[in-house]
Amino acid sequence: MTDKDLQVQEKQELQTKSESTRNVPIFVPAVDIYESENELTLLADMPGVPIGNVDIDLNDDQLTIRGTAPEQEQSGTALLREYSVGDYYRQFTVSSAIDREKIVASMKDGVLKLVLPKAEAAKPRKIEVKTA
């Protein structure tokens, strides 16, 4: 898998009825989500967003991730523009019960890592089958 050549994934703009007040595009970040026995982990590519500009909200089972790109102060004239810079926004419905007190978020090299531990009640319980 590592031998594969990377392809450009065109940044997908968010389709929404309500407009944002800032005139910057809003993109849908690419994510990986995986589940283990005890937790749900989410990785989201949000290049250009510093840790302080990330907003995470869990309302009932609605998980919202928001990343704000800082204002770009690039001087000079543009010769080539292959990507545009903007904010990131994505919403998920989280099915299993999450222990919201223990959510850990970290950001490294433009990748947000969100660890959502499952609530005790939602963890699988092993039930022993007794032979009669």
Binding site: L6, V8, Q74, S75, G76, T77, L79, E82, D109
Partner: peptide
């Protein structure tokens, strides 16, 4: 866009060129 990874933005001023790329992770 050339379609080759990574997407680049290139700027110039009088004596410098600026090349930027998003490489998360």
């Amino acid at each position: 866009a050339s379609g080759v990874f990574p997407a680049l933005n290139v700027f110039e001023d009088a004596d410098k060129l600026y090349v930027q790329a998003e490489l998360p992770g």
